[in-house]
Amino acid sequence: MYVFLPPDCKRMNKKVAVFRRETFNAAHRLNNPDWDEATNYRVFGKCNNPHYHGHNYELEVKVTGDPAADTGFVMDLKVLSDLIKKLVVERFDHKNLNLDTQEFKNLNPTAENIAIVIYDLLRPHIDGKNSIQVRLYETPRNFVEYPA
């Protein structure tokens, strides 16, 4: 019989994390409509520019679980890639997050909030036995993770 898992996978902790990275490019601005212009500028600085600015967002989705006995996969990464493209990239790529998306009509599109929104979009479509975590890079030096 062909063996799909290494023999020592019978040990207690055999959870493995698998990752898929995707990218999207979008415009946004940080603005709290309950505040006046001066307060918004003081808090959000140049991120408040009324004509928007933009980023190349890099998204990493981590799926953690037990490799299946029959495939050796925690999750087929092609399936994960297709899910991210359909649910996240098609929604946000080359869009203005504030103006073009339902999700940020009334939600400030900070990296933190974008990560939470992406988690909520993906979670129902991934096997409940596996945990997921979203890491979102807004720039190569600024990134967030959810859940923390």
Partner: peptide, 12 residues
């Protein structure tokens, strides 16, 4: 294509 999106997009 999508680079023409009326409401802009952006880059690093």
């Amino acid at each position: 294509g999508k680079c023409a999106n009326e409401n802009w997009h952006g880059h690093n």
